[in-house]
Design a protein around this nucleic acid. Structure first.
Length: 669
DNA sequence: TAGGCCAAGATTTTC
DNA sequence: TCTTGGCCTA
C-alpha cells in the first residue's frame, strides 16, 4: 500500500487492509469506513501481485457489488475484467451456468421469483388435487424454503405437505426452473457431490471476501466455507448490530461459527465512526444498547456536538408528506442542501404512496429503491414471460402466463385437457401441446387445436430470432407489435386509456433496457439467457439507476443499508410500523431485529435527522389512530427536540414531551 | 366454453 | 388502490 493510501486510514483500518493471508473477521460498525477498507484491501491484494482471477468478493445486494467494483476501479485505475465481485445469488447462477447439467438440469433454466413460486404451487396443487383453500401459501412456501435450505428437516414438515413439496420440486425440475434458494442450494450440491468441481473453484478462488457477513444465511455460510476452507484466506466483514435480514434466513450466529470454523482467525474491530455527528451517534448507541443479544461494541466519533434530532407529529400521512416536502425545500433554499443528499426512509413500501404524492405535488424530484419493482409490473412480467418461454419452452409457469395473453380464445377447458395430457406423459405443457396436436386421436376440438397451433407457431417463429445473439431489442419490438399487445392493453384497461398508455410506455422502456443491455460492450454476445438471469437477480433495481443526481432518495430502511445521507427523514416512526406489528406477532423476540432496523435507519444520517410520527394514518381503506414508536423512548431525550408543526418548542419546556404526547393521544389528540 | 363483470382481499423487509 | 378470483352471461 502506498503512503498516500496509508495516510487515509486509521490504525485498525490499516491492519484490516494489510492482513491478506489467513482468516480474518472484521467487525465494522456503522460508518466506520467499511467500504473503504474493503476496496483498499482488494487494491492492496492486486498490487501485491495476486491475480484478479484469484479473488472472489461476495456481497449481499447488487448495488453493493456494483459500488465495490466501481470503487476498486477508481482506486486502482485498472480494468477489472478478471475480478469476481457479485452477490451470492449471482455467483450461484454463474456456477450453475457452467455445471448445472451435472444435476440433471439444462443450461437454459428459468429463475422463479416469489410470484412464480406461488403460481407453481397453485398449479402443482391443482394437478395432484390438493386443496389449498384455507392454506396461507406464503407461509407454506416459507416452510418449503426452510426445508430446502436445510433449516428444517423434511420430517418436520406436516405429512400432508410432504407430497406437495416433492411434487413442487419435481415440477421445478420438469420445467427446468430454479428458485432463489436453489441458486445457493444447487451450487452447494455441486461442490459437495463433484470433487472435481470443488477443486476447480478452490484452485481458482484462493482469496474469498464476504461483505455484510451478518446477513449471510446458514446456506450461504456453508457455500462460502466450501470455497474458502482449504486456503483459509477468507475475510468476512460484518456488524451484528446491522443484521436485518433474519426473515430471509440471515443468521449473525455465523460470526461465532466463523471463529470456530477458522481457528486462528484474526479479529479486528472498527469502532470509530466517520459519518455522523456525535448527537446522531449517541442516539443510535442509546437505541441499540437495549438489545441483549449482541457482541457489544461502542461507536465513537472524534467530532463533538451536532444539531439536535427534530421530532414532529403530523396530523396524518398526508400532512407528513407535505411537511417533509416543505422542509426539504426550505433547507434547499436556505442552507443550500442538495436534493441528492436527502434520504427519506420508511419501514414499509406502503408508506411510499403518500410521500410520493407530496413530492409530486411539491415538484421535488425523487427516486425510489425498493417498492414495487419495474420488473414486477404486470405488463413487464408478461413480456418477460414470453422471453423466458423463448429461452426455455418447458417453463410452464411462463407458458401459462402468456398462453392467453393477449386473448387467443384458449380457455379453461382446453387448458385442463392439455394439462392432463402433459401430466400423463410426465412432460411439460409445451411438449404436451405438441403431442396433442400431432396425435391422431387428439381429444381437443378443432377450434382449440387451431388456437394452440397458432400459439406454437408464434413461439417457433420467434424463438430462433430471440436466441440469436443479436438484435434482441428489435426482435422484441417486432414481437410486441406482432402480438398486438397494445390492443390487449386497451382491451384490459377500458376505463382509462391513460393506464393503457402508461403501461405501453413501460413496455417501451423495457425494450429500451434490452437495447441498452445489448449496446453495453461488456455484454456483447451474451444474449437472452444472460439478460433474463440478470433481470431476475436485479428485480429490485429501477431501470435507470444512473440519474440519481438532483433527486431525493425515498427508500425502505432495508434498501438504505450501506448508504448515507447528509440529511435523513425517518417517516412513520409509529407503533405497529416500527417495530412492525407483524414481525412481533410472528415472534416477540423479533423486537431486537426491529430495533437493529431502527438503528440502521438512524445511522444513515451524517448531519441531521428528522423523525416524524403521524397521529392518524390511512391504512388500506380506513383511517387508524397511531402512537409514536416505543423506540423513540430509547433515544436520550436531551438529543431530541419536539417540534410543533410550525415552530420549535423550547427544550426545557419539552422535558416531558413524551408523556405529554402520549396523554394527547390517549385523549384522542 | 370463453370472456366480462363485480366483489373481496391484501400490504414487511429482498436476492 | 390495485389485483385476483369467482360467477354469470352470451
Amino acid at each position: 500500500m502506498t503512503t498516500a493510501h496509508r495516510s487515509e486510514l486509521n490504525k485498525e483500518q490499516i491492519e484490516a487492509v494489510e492482513t491478506i493471508e489467513g482468516p480474518l473477521l472484521i467487525i465494522a460498525g456503522a460508518g466506520s469506513g467499511k467500504t473503504r477498507v474493503i476496496t483498499y484491501r482488494i487494491a492492496c491484494m492486486l498490487s501485491s501481485g495476486i491475480p484478479q482471477k484469484a479473488i472472489l468478493a461476495l456481497t449481499f445486494t447488487n448495488k453493493a457489488a456494483r459500488e465495490m467494483q466501481e470503487r476498486v476501479r477508481e482506486l486502482t485505475g485498472k480494468k477489472l475484467a478478471g475480478l469476481s465481485i457479485s452477490t451470492f445469488h449471482a455467483f450461484g447462477v454463474r456456477v450453475l451456468r457452467s455445471h448445472i447439467h451435472r444435476l440433471g438440469y439444462r443450461e437454459n433454466f428459468s429463475i422463479y421469483d416469489v410470484a412464480d413460486q406461488h403460481d407453481l404451487l397453485k398449479e402443482t396443487a391443482r394437478e395432484i388435487a390438493f386443496s389449498l383453500e384455507s392454506v396461507d401459501t406464503t407461509k407454506l412456501l416459507a416452510l418449503f424454503s426452510r426445508v430446502k435450505t436445510r433449516m428444517m428437516p423434511m420430517a418436520e414438515l406436516a405429512i400432508a405437505y410432504q407430497e406437495l413439496y416433492r411434487e413442487y420440486q419435481s415440477h421445478m425440475k420438469l420445467y427446468n426452473a430454479v428458485d432463489f434458494d436453489d441458486l445457493i442450494a444447487l451450487p452447494i450440491k455441486l461442490l459437495e457431490s463433484f470433487p472435481d468441481v470443488l477443486v476447480e473453484y478452490r484452485n481458482q478462488f484462493r482469496y474469498v471476501l464476504v461483505d455484510e457477513f451478518q446477513d449471510t444465511s446458514r446456506q450461504q455460510y456453508r457455500f462460502m466455507k466450501l470455497l474458502g476452507h482449504s486456503s483459509g484466506n477468507v475475510c468476512v466483514v460484518g456488524d451484528d448490530d446491522q443484521s436485518i435480514y433474519s426473515w430471509r434466513g440471515a443468521d449473525f450466529g455465523n460470526i461465532l461459527e466463523f471463529e470456530k470454523d477458522f481457528p486462528g482467525c484474526r479479529e479486528i474491530k472498527l469502532e470509530r465512526n466517520y459519518r455522523s455527528t456525535d448527537t446522531i451517534l449517541a442516539a443510535a448507541n442509546g437505541v441499540i444498547s437495549h438489545n441483549k443479544n449482541r457482541k457489544g461494541k461502542n461507536l465513537w466519533t472524534g467530532t463533538k456536538g451536532g444539531k439536535p434530532i427534530e421530532l414532529y407529529y403530523p396530523e396524518d400521512d398526508r400532512q407528513e408528506g407535505l411537511f417533509i416536502a416543505e422542509k426539504i425545500k426550505t433547507l434547499a433554499m436556505r442552507e443550500g442542501l442538495k436534493y441528492h443528499d436527502v434520504g427519506v426512509l420508511v419501514r414499509t413500501n406502503s408508506l411510499f404512496r403518500s410521500l410520493e404524492e407530496a413530492f409530486l405535488a411539491e415538484n421535488i424530484p425523487y427516486r425510489t429503491t425498493g417498492g414495487q419493482s419495474f420488473f414486477q409490473r404486470k405488463e413487464i412480467k408478461d413480456i418477460i414471460a414470453y422471453l423466458r418461454l423463448m429461452a426455455n419452452p418447458d417453463d410452464d409457469i411462463s407458458l401459462l402466463r402468456v398462453l392467453n395473453t393477449p386473448r387467443r380464445g384458449i380457455g379453461k377447458r382446453t387448458l385442463e385437457q392439455i394439462t392432463e395430457l402433459a401430466v400423463s406423459r410426465g412432460a411439460s405443457l409445451h411438449t404436451g401441446i405438441q403431442a396433442a396436436l400431432h396425435a391422431a386421436d387428439s381429444p381437443l376440438p378443432p377450434k382449440a387445436q387451431g388456437d394452440l397451433h397458432a400459439f406454437l407457431d408464434l413461439i417457433e417463429e420467434y424463438r430462433p430470432r430471440f436466441l440469436a445473439k443479436k438484435k434482441l431489442g428489435d426482435t422484441l419490438k417486432a414481437f410486441v407489435e406482432d402480438i398486438d399487445y397494445w390492443a390487449h392493453l386497451v382491451a384490459e384497461n377500458q376505463k382509462s386509456d391513460k393506464a393503457a398508455k402508461w403501461k405501453y410506455r413501460n413496455i417501451e422502456i423495457f425494450i429500451g433496457i434490452v437495447r441498452d443491455y445489448e449496446r453495453d460492450p461488456d455484454n456483447q454476445n451474451s444474449g437472452v439467457f444472460d439478460f433474463l438471469n440478470r433481470i431476475s437477480l436485479n428485480s429490485r433495481d429501477e431501470p435507470d439507476p444512473k440519474d440519481s443526481s438532483g433527486k431525493i432518495n425515498l427508500m425502505t430502511i432495508h434498501a438504505a443499508k450501506g448508504l448515507e445521507h447528509e440529511v435523513v427523514f425517518l417517516a412513520g416512526v409509529e407503533e405497529h410500523l416500527i417495530p412492525h406489528a407483524r414481525a412481533i406477532e410472528e415472534n416477540p423476540d423479533n423486537i431486537e431485529e426491529e430495533r437493529r432496523l431502527f438503528y440502521v435507519a438512524i445511522t444513515r444520517a451524517r448531519q441531521k435527522l428528522f423523525i416524524t410520527a403521524c397521529r392518524k394514518r390511512r391504512v388500506m381503506r380506513e383511517i387508524v389512530e397511531s402512537l409514536p414508536s416505543p423506540f423513540l423512548e430509547e433515544i436520550p431525550e436531551s438529543l431530541m427536540q419536539l417540534m410543533e408543526m410550525d415552530e420549535p418548542v423550547e427544550t426545557d419546556e419539552a422535558v416531558d414531551y413524551f408523556a405529554r404526547i402520549k396523554a394527547q393521544f390517549a385523549s384522542g389528540g
